[in-house]
Computed example of a mutant assay.
Amino acid sequence: MTDCIFCKIVAGDIPARKVYEDDDVLVFHDIKPAADVHLLLIPKVHVESLAHCDDGHAQVLSRLMLLAPKLAAEHGLEKGFKTAINTGVGGGQEVFHLHVHVYGNR
Rank of each mutant, 00 (worst) to 15 (best):
V27R: 07
V47M: 14
S49D: 04
L26G: 02
K44A: 11
H29L: 13
I42M: 10
H38L: 07
L41A: 05
D54R: 10
F28T: 00
S49C: 01
D36H: 04
V27F: 14
H52R: 13
P33Q: 05
V25P: 05
F28M: 08
A35M: 03
D54C: 01
D55M: 13
I42K: 09
D54M: 10
A35E: 00
F28I: 11
K32H: 11
H52K: 14
K32I: 11
K44T: 12
K44R: 15
V45L: 14
C53S: 14
A34H: 09
L39W: 10
K44G: 03
D36V: 03
D30K: 02
A34N: 01
D30T: 00
V27W: 14
I31C: 00
P33T: 03
H46K: 08
E48P: 09
V37A: 06
D24F: 06
I31K: 07
H29G: 09
V27Q: 04
D24T: 14
H38Q: 02
L41N: 02
V37H: 04
L40W: 09
I31W: 05
I42R: 14
P43N: 09
L40R: 09
G56Y: 02
D24R: 15
V25T: 15
A51W: 12
K44E: 07
V37K: 08
L39F: 09
C53I: 14
D55I: 08
D24M: 03
D55R: 03
K44Y: 07
A34F: 07
V47Q: 08
V27L: 11
V37E: 05
V27K: 11
G56I: 08
L39M: 10
I42P: 04
H57G: 02
V27P: 00
D30F: 13
L50H: 14
I31D: 10
L50V: 05
I31G: 02
L26C: 12
V25E: 00
I42A: 13
A35D: 05
C53Y: 11
K44I: 08
V47G: 08
V25Y: 10
I42S: 07
F28C: 04
K32N: 13
L40C: 06
V45R: 15
H46Q: 13
I31L: 10
H46Y: 12
G56S: 06
H38C: 05
I31V: 15
D54Q: 02
I42W: 13
A35F: 04
D54K: 05
D24G: 10
A34V: 08
V47N: 00
H38K: 01
C53N: 15
V27C: 08
P33E: 12
I42H: 12
L40K: 07
S49G: 03
G56Q: 10
L39C: 07
V45I: 15
P43T: 15
L41H: 11
H52P: 03
V47H: 05
L50I: 04
H46N: 02
V37P: 07
A51T: 10
G56R: 00
I31Q: 01
D24N: 15
I42Y: 11
L41Q: 09
C53P: 02
D30L: 11
V45Y: 12
K44S: 05
K44D: 03
A51D: 14
D55K: 13
I31E: 03
S49V: 00
H57W: 09
V37S: 09
D24H: 13
V25M: 15
V45W: 06
H46C: 03
H46F: 15
G56P: 00
A51K: 12
P43S: 07
E48R: 12
H29C: 08
V37Y: 01
